[in-house]
Design a protein around this nucleic acid. Structure first.
Lengths: 241, 241
DNA sequence: TTCAAACAATGACATGGATCAAACACGCGT
DNA sequence: ACGCGTGTTTGATCCATGTCATTGTTTGAA
């Protein structure tokens, strides 16, 4: 079995139903593959890009996971997003010509590199791809609005419950178990993302376990009572990202 | 040359340097004007669109101001944005085909109605417009990231200071005074936006006044010490102890 | 395997901002 | 101009969550 530099093929990609190819014909997917030839592997803790790096590409996650964060003027950071396979990183860099924040791999991860000028050119010719790009931008905005809702109004336990429900449903959509998964990020990243402290997150996870909502074992989580958890989160129907 | 129902002309619009026409040639602006023919006036307290309304148009603010808000599953709302002239409303509706939140005029306001399918079609032919649309999407994402930073990490006074500085600079960019302006929204909207209560906002405004950072008279604000205010907001470069 | 360093859990205590309550001001319709 | 309702200010109190401190647990390198 020979191992060339691994060929990227959207048609065979396990996340194609969640990624740019959505809604594209086979022919158009072939043209998209011309743009997505380059693939990159990032190891845990390494960054895909840093704040200030020039913008030239978007990155589509094939496997693994990332955290994105922005850095404030006074140096403190805010985790803005946990990204799973099928999601696009770097969209917020277009307008300024450079990345306003960084993306760090939470585990060994693999991404498709999408040179934006090429993608742009192709989108100009393929309306379905154009629509898909708009859709992803818009979806991202909607998600951030929901994140704002979370940070603005909800109590600590509600926030953490919402994150667990959200991650659970995102894994579920990708064909993994909705009830058993690994939180690949540290407690402190979760805390930062939710606007809390690591101690509070830790305490709440313990409490949720005592209340038999979940079972926690290090970074492995089992959802025991998804209904109660959703109610706590304030999102009665488990919505998807 | 008779004045019918007020003609919309991007070339003459006072906010054209901040709006979609940025970077477009005169010829392209003419084509854009074909799309922006419709204008709409919204009175204070009226909504431009509500959560759940079908998405068909974007709205470009010509004058006035709006608040956008999303409504959580349990009914409580989060103000996500205060929008000023030159800004686009409705971008987050594309992916779902409907508006996830509502936009309410804070004062008598006027907007251009941009039917999205037409805009999309034109963008397909005019790369500069395409770029401008991407840019606006991306800019919006970047701003929301900054909002997340604000809500996630900062203390109440820092948040309020940041809002004041932000609004001041946005007015300034539009050619108005950076130091004297009117907060067209209620205290409770500010509070909601910042993840605080109206009481806290009120107290802080009083305190800022006592500290001679600002002068408040109802909804009119005068910035007395922009430097100190920026420092409070954490938007200057300083290292924390 | 052992050790050191990073990560996580838990406890004790402090506090910023929420909540409740009351007085005050302003705008609007009559 | 009057009165009423909505919005705003201010005060008193309380609690959720942050902070600081300690101990326990996992990870990974030698």
């Amino acid at each position: 079995m020979k191992k060339t530099s691994p060929a990227v093929s959207c048609s065979n990609c396990s996340v194609r139903r969640l990624c740019l190819p959505v809604g594209l014909s086979d022919g158009d997917i072939e043209r998209l593959e011309q743009v997505t030839r380059k693939k990159k592997v990032v190891r845990a803790g390494e960054t895909l890009f840093r704040a200030g790096d020039p913008f030239d590409s978007l990155y589509a996650i094939r496997s693994g996971s990332f955290k994105s964060a922005v850095i404030g003027a006074d140096g403190d950071t805010q985790v803005t997003h946990f990204a799973l396979p099928g999601e696009l990183l770097g969209l917020d860099a277009y307008s300024g010509g450079m990345h306003p924040g960084y993306a760090e791999a939470l585990e060994e991860s693999s991404v498709c590199v999408l040179p934006f000028t090429q993608l742009e050119g192709l989108a100009q010719q393929v309306p379905a791809l154009q629509k898909q790009i708009y859709s992803i931008f818009s979806e991202e905005l909607k998600q951030e609005n929901e994140a704002l809702l979370l940070l603005g109004k909800r109590s600590a336990d509600s926030r953490l419950a919402a994150l667990l429900v959200n991650i659970s449903s995102r894994y579920s959509r990708r064909g993994y178990s909705a009830s058993d998964f690994v939180l690949s990020m540290q407690r402190i990243d979760i805390a930062n993302y939710l606007g809390l402290t690591a101690e509070t997150v830790s305490r709440l996870l313990s409490r949720f376990q005592k209340q038999e909502l979940i079972r926690v074992q290090g970074r492995s989580v089992t959802i025991l009572d998804p209904i109660a958890l959703s109610e706590l989160a304030g999102t009665h129907c488990s919505y998807e990202s």
